[in-house]
Amino acid sequence: MFLMETIPLIILRTLWISGTAVVLSLLWSLPLAYLLSRKHGLAKIMVPVFDALIGVPTVLIGLVLYMLFSSRGPLGFLGLLYTPYAIIIGEAILVTPLITSTTYHVLNNVISTYGELALTLGATDKQAMMVALREGLPGVLASIAMAFSRASGELGIALMVGGNIKGYTRVMTTAIALEVSRGEFESAIMLGVVLVVIVVSTSIAIRFLQRKVYG
């Protein structure tokens, strides 16, 4: 039970690591999706690839990054192994296919459909853009929420490149794994419940936001 006092810190660490990972991923996922929506040929090849990678096993990303970041690996000199930054990078990569693919589909279908519809009703180009965003944004927001859930709920990357270091890289999933291995089921279950609450409330918050806007 000695873990209990540090639980709030672990929760906060999980939130910032996964949150930062999602934001980082947005930096390239959104431009990538835009690029794909412009280049039909490229999209034909890349979109199915991204779709397939949505479910990529986290241990696989963990393994690859471990080899890159380990002291003898090509990026070993960066000293990233067993830091929160390694987890952030890994989780950002993890959620890239999900965000890119959803955003691509939104740009490609939703925006062209609603953009054209707005034009038929006499919208200016700018008004058409606004209405297309209004229709497309919920899909993108939902995928961002999903990405956050996936990032905060993954174990493979955090364990392999984070190392589950107490007070530094320990996040909720690695803490749960540790507690279970110690036979401390009570705190493991508690952390598990909190994790579920975080994931569910993210999704509820997004829904609530959509209600507000589209109600």
Partner: peptide, 24 residues
Amino acid sequence: VYVHEKPVLFKGTVEYNIAYGLMI
């Protein structure tokens, strides 16, 4: 004004949809 053969409607209420063209 063109009306699509497969109707496309905006999210929201029916009255919002009908009012949209007037508002813009």
